[in-house]
Write a protein that binds this DNA or RNA. Sequence first.
DNA 1: CATAATAGTGACAATTCTTGTCATAATTAA
DNA 2: TTAATTATGACAAGAATTGTCACTATTATG
Lengths: 313, 313
Amino acid sequence: MSKSKRLMELMMTVNRKRKFTVGELAREFGVSQRTILRDLQELGELGVPLYSEVGPHGGYQVLRERLLPPIAFTEEEAVSIFFAVHALRHYSSLPFETESSSALKKFYAYLPEDVRERIDQMKNRVDFVTPARKAVSPYLSILLDAAVQQNVLLIRYQAREKSSDREIQPIGIFTRNGHWYCSAYCYRSEGMRVFRCDRIHSAIPSAAEALDLRHIHLENKASAGRKERSEVRVFAELTLEGAETCEAEPWPEPKLTRREDGTGWLQGTIAREDLSYFARFFIGLGGGATVKDSPELLAEMKAMLAELLGKYS
Amino acid sequence: MSKSKRLMELMMTVNRKRKFTVGELAREFGVSQRTILRDLQELGELGVPLYSEVGPHGGYQVLRERLLPPIAFTEEEAVSIFFAVHALRHYSSLPFETESSSALKKFYAYLPEDVRERIDQMKNRVDFVTPARKAVSPYLSILLDAAVQQNVLLIRYQAREKSSDREIQPIGIFTRNGHWYCSAYCYRSEGMRVFRCDRIHSAIPSAAEALDLRHIHLENKASAGRKERSEVRVFAELTLEGAETCEAEPWPEPKLTRREDGTGWLQGTIAREDLSYFARFFIGLGGGATVKDSPELLAEMKAMLAELLGKYS
DNA sequence: CATAATAGTGACAATTCTTGTCATAATTAA
DNA sequence: TTAATTATGACAAGAATTGTCACTATTATG
């Protein structure tokens, strides 16, 4: 094998393994240790961040940076990647150490000129908008780590006026409409809950024993067992416009069903404590929704409407 | 320069230029043509898809696939890129030839094992949600092309019940909350308008002469001149919750201002034709907003509230 | 402390690779 | 036809690569 080829393969091998020794590579490539040493030095000069330690259990390591081997991307693929990463700029908080802008710069810098030109032309003409929120969520990576490792956290959570401490076991985090949320099993309410991450004002590891919830994740969390609680039925008829607005809502319940013509209905049960939330939601739909059920919800809505009407008279 | 280094740089150079000749490279690298020829053959053996044609205006070309040269990404950067591209899967329509999933596969396949493991662990625990819409927007790439090239399109647009034909000159497209929108200068209303792309039922090139709107793009379109139309003032006091909801809204007007404590106010002017939209919006804010101005808006809101109250009595 | 496992250096000679040069084909657009 | 291209082969000078050997230095472990 020629030296050039060996160097390329060495680069890949070295990136694949986190740690390795000179002898190991020498055997693998069928050359002498001396040669590998020389090769490694050359790789270092070419920019691969190598670090070595002598002694038993010593050896070479590639530092935090990994060289991504040459990947064949088509122009379209490169454009997709660019805009996907570009879209992340709207987020004020991310669960990773916001390295996305440096990644984007590198990626952009290495693209062929003509693809770069195409991107430049498109940059101000395509956008993936996310509402820019001022609220930051400093605990995203802690929550995510806890979800991955299935640890229990003790959080201080600010709900409306009052703040409370609770132990939660995160299932995952997600962002919607500019806010970050954390799905978690809440030990206080003994069920799955969704917390808005910018309302979590502290998060520390808890000593509590974790439940085995490894099989539950963001895709299937709806099926997680929940404690019985006071629930009320909901049924609402929707116009086309009303149905479209509901489509954008994240809740698993009540469920939206749509007819051929675009209209539809919402049906399901909600927690009694969410009554006022849904009352306001349906009022916000205006003529787009006609709530038929339940009486409690209708009563809440009427009260709210009367109050508003009073306010503006 | 050693051969290995030259080969690496050659790979990058070759990917940057679309077309090149042997003599060109020989001059650039300061070696003989014979050497470059040998190098190119070696690059070919290493997987770079080279293609050559003899004769005048012949030369070498890199085929459709471009090799992205080895880029040093940190682990965090690679993770960011992965999740950014991963998030695109929520979109049913994209303005590029949806190559994002193949890009993702390649990218994933080439990552070092341990980063891949980390991603696997996080995959079901982080998500960037976008409401899944059923409506598709088949004209996205046509609209985008028109925006880039500043062409005029004749579209058939379905607004509420009636559909109409209009000539527009697209400024750009953007997605929010699961819908795609197109900002464009509308020749019929002689001003900037935003169209929902899934309501565009045809789009063909128009013979009309394009205006010079090259300086206008998504970031600054608000400043584009608009036709005089009947406007009404808006002023509303907002609680913290109300302000947060407003923050997520896309309109440039009325403007949101926030105080230290999180509360704030909305102030500005809106088109008279949007009155009922805003009336409903403010009603949806419930106690979160107290509208103070203008009388027309208040009247509209009162009427709407009364109607809703009547509906549920 | 001794030992073994590591990395790291230097020198040298044998070998292999690389490079430029020259000669020559083949192809093709203009 | 001509000029601009790629393409190939041969050869010799020179440069680079490689393995070997002999060292040194560092450090975890028993």
